[in-house]
Amino acid sequence: MRLDDLDPSENVRDLGSGGRGGGGGFPLLGLLPLLFSGRRMGCGTIGLLVVVGLVYVMMSGGGGGLLGGGGGSLAPTQQGASTAGGTGAKVCNTAERLFSCRVLASTEQVWGKLFAASGQRYQPPTLNFYQGGTQSGCGAATSAAGPFYCPPDHGVFLDTSFFDELQNRFGAKGDFAEAYVIAHEVGHHIQTLTGTSQRVQQAQQRAGRVQGNQLSVRLELQADCYAGVWAKQSGRLEPGDVEEGMTAARAIGDDTLQRQAQGTVVPDSFTHGSSDERMRWLRRGLETGDPAQCDTFSGSID
């Protein structure tokens, strides 16, 4: 992606190190309280799927809904994120952070324009960098959870070490694969601003586990589509970027991760969508550039 000419976003915070799950510890153990807390963990936990696959194996549960149905946001807590290392573009002080800050700046431009076209004012999210672990308005999380979006904070939370995981473990290389991860989380912010996330969470509270999972899948696929819309509208795609995005979407599909972790696939336990579904909806956004084409809640998602 061509982002070098963009000034980094100012809507950035450095939360420092939470001392959880970093430096050779056991990040999985740090995440277990979240997994079994009864709170929904659906909004944007792309990297969490890696850990979930491991939990499937450890608990021998056959993929039986360890995320409590997924899809909605984590429940708000009394303690929100605290700023440790400063705010603003000055915290974009590594190559990985600078790239992330520029991606965020591009999403601000695109979604600002799209919201303005419909007579609305876009309120951008905050990108929160952390290392190892952090405390958010949705509770504690470790870097093993991967990037996530917390609605009470209107914030995307990112430990940039996940980019190494994305490349080395999943084989999803390239800058657009990384940008897709951030844009997906911003997609969850769009869902919060439009009220979609809240409506899905309310519906999940009335639904059974399987139906709740299906709603989660639709929410996640819409965020994938919104990521594609941003990429198309940004005008910054280069040759090979679409292929990088498709590789990333394929690598983090529920069926692919379950097959790698446990050798079997349990569709009723999907919370983010199959590889084919994630690729399809990301591509729809990339091809149309139209958020109106990202309605995953009407009709089939196939």
Rank of each mutant, 00 (worst) to 15 (best):
residue 57 V to P: 12
residue 79 Q to K: 14
residue 190 I to G: 05
residue 277 E to S: 06
residue 38 G to H: 15
residue 221 L to C: 00
residue 100 S to Y: 00
residue 232 K to A: 03
residue 239 P to C: 01
residue 230 W to R: 00
residue 239 P to R: 00
residue 275 S to K: 05
residue 148 F to H: 09
residue 58 M to Y: 09
residue 135 Q to D: 13
residue 217 V to E: 01
residue 275 S to M: 04
residue 55 V to I: 09
residue 283 R to N: 08
residue 28 L to F: 14
residue 132 G to W: 03
residue 295 D to T: 01
residue 275 S to L: 06
residue 18 G to S: 09
residue 98 L to R: 02
residue 131 Q to K: 14
residue 30 G to S: 15
residue 222 Q to W: 01
residue 163 F to S: 02
residue 22 G to E: 15
residue 98 L to I: 00
residue 168 N to P: 11
residue 191 Q to Y: 10
residue 169 R to L: 15
residue 223 A to C: 01
residue 147 P to L: 07
residue 157 F to I: 00
residue 221 L to T: 00
residue 287 E to W: 08
residue 99 F to R: 03
residue 26 F to L: 15
residue 238 E to A: 12
residue 152 P to L: 01
residue 117 A to P: 07
residue 196 T to I: 11
residue 261 A to C: 11
residue 99 F to W: 04
residue 109 Q to N: 08
residue 150 C to H: 08
residue 246 M to P: 07
residue 68 G to I: 02
residue 162 F to R: 02
residue 226 Y to T: 00
residue 153 D to Y: 02
residue 128 N to P: 14
residue 175 D to A: 14
residue 8 P to W: 10
residue 232 K to V: 00
residue 286 L to G: 03
residue 177 A to L: 09
residue 292 A to R: 10
residue 103 V to P: 01
residue 157 F to K: 00
residue 256 T to F: 11
residue 235 G to E: 04
residue 91 V to H: 11
residue 251 A to D: 06
residue 162 F to I: 11
residue 116 A to E: 06
residue 301 I to E: 03
residue 76 P to V: 01
residue 243 E to I: 09
residue 47 G to T: 12
residue 123 Q to K: 14
residue 59 M to K: 10
residue 75 A to H: 09
residue 6 L to H: 07
residue 302 D to F: 11
residue 197 S to Q: 13
residue 208 G to S: 05
residue 101 C to P: 04
residue 112 G to M: 00
residue 299 G to D: 05
residue 224 D to V: 03
residue 258 Q to E: 14
residue 226 Y to C: 00
residue 81 A to Y: 12
residue 253 G to H: 08
